[in-house]
Design a binder for these strands. Structure first.
Lengths: 239, 239
DNA sequence: CGCGGTGTTGAGACCTGTCAAGACGTGTGG
DNA sequence: CCACACGTCTTGACAGGTCTCAACACCGCG
């Protein structure tokens, strides 16, 4: 059930049997939520972090003027809000992009881990620092990449992140986002996303239909995106 | 010497005398670096984190095409790279925006803290999660705010962050960035930053000359920026 | 059967970028 | 001490990428 989570952790560092047991003991009952529902609301006190088991979620920030920015997409195996453990409340909503399965991890269990398992603590700390690295790359996209580069970069990032948990087949993966949501990720409008997707299709780089993305030319897509996977920290290292 | 750092920590949580002693024991010799020099290079293994004592630094990401994005500004009292403790190498450079004083904190000392001081560990973990929250707000700026909103928002953020460490007088603070660097923070060009600053001056909201910024109308600047300081997590809470 | 969400397309507007030039101050070497 | 290079700020004209507004097709669903 939490295998994808363990796979994600073990891609970056060794997790001992005791540590795995501590994680398993901390995870609560599996729960479900439907697409479009809000899992976590901004500025509400939080006493547990949420481990995503199935489905995709997004961290969403809104302006009063109605503008919306998705600041990260979370995939199966990710904590959607491990940072709520130290922040106590979030600066953003977390919404389900698809039907999701998730499991709660009480903050008191995490606190116990920080007392009894310093190495595992550092692994989880790493995990939030990885989120921040992804944030920085998205900032670079929003600030400096053109529309086509932004779309291409997001597709490359998701390809690599999904490969870690074995959710990619033949450079193709389930892609549940609508063009509106894609626009919210990229700081573009839905209309422009639509035109950009058509340009990528016209260049023979991708196929995207029926919620499935197939990347037809990975090297070229990475080139357009100026994609370098370093920021995803996939090298296994003692943390 | 590390008083500003302690002030910053204590704005968010209590730090005991033992914890303070542990911090002081971990901090190494003060060093200096000149403006424009690179403190930390991306993708080089790092074995100590750097505590900024005086001056401003920036986290810089570059594209091959020459585009540059500053992803965060660090101020006195900040760790410029606490995240290197878990990441082991950085996805970005850290450059000195001004002449700087800083002190190294060996990662082995931080590791010892994660073993002996779980609460202090959580406080430092919080500190990197705060960086990520700032990243998310910058993403919202780059993706969804107009040029004038972005500039206004950055000025408001720095006002609040500098107030924490007592570096603001009468809504006025030293502002060492050039318009080129400002553009790199905001995902704009220097020319457009120039015009945007003139618009803010024309509206009587700011004065900016000789590297000093004075905000003449704080409420109106915050309104234009849609600035809400929540994301800076200034409430004191047990972490 | 109508409705809302989604994807698509076109025309035009506008915000921001590009390119170029000049003013000004500073530092430096001849 | 002057000449010059360089970084910074400023301004103008123009280009272009992206947005806005509008309309329409399609589809699943109540």
């Amino acid at each position: 059930m939490i295998e994808t989570h363990l796979r994600k952790l073990r891609a970056r560092d060794d997790i001992s049997a005791e540590e795995e047991a501590a994680i398993r003991a901390a995870v609560g009952e599996v729960d479900r939520i439907a697409a479009h529902r809000t899992l976590i609301r901004a500025w509400k006190p939080i006493h547990e972090s949420t481990l995503l088991l199935k489905g995709w979620t997004a961290r969403v920030k809104d302006l009063e003027s109605g503008e919306r920015q998705i600041t990260e997409i979370n995939l199966p195996g990710d904590f959607v809000d491990l940072h709520s453990f130290t922040l106590k409340e979030l600066d953003h909503d977390v919404v389900a992009l698809t039907d999701c399965e998730f499991a709660p991890v009480p903050h008191e269990k995490l606190e116990a881990i920080t007392v009894d398992f310093p190495h595992l603590t550092r692994v989880y700390w790493f995990s939030t620092d990885l989120d921040a690295a992804i944030h920085r790359e998205w900032m670079l996209s929003a600030g400096r990449r053109t529309a086509i580069g932004r779309v291409a970069h997001l597709f490359c990032e998701l390809l690599v992140r999904l490969e870690v948990t074995g959710c990619v087949e033949d450079n193709s993966y389930e892609f549940p986002l609508t063009q509106v949501q894609l626009a919210d990720c990229l700081g573009l409008t839905a209309v422009h996303v639509n035109r950009t997707l058509q340009e990528l299709r016209r260049q023979g780089l991708i196929e995207l239909r029926e919620k499935r993305l197939r990347i037809l030319n990975v090297p070229e897509l990475k080139r357009i995106a100026e994609f370098d996977p370093g920021y995803l920290y996939l090298k296994k290292q003692p943390r």
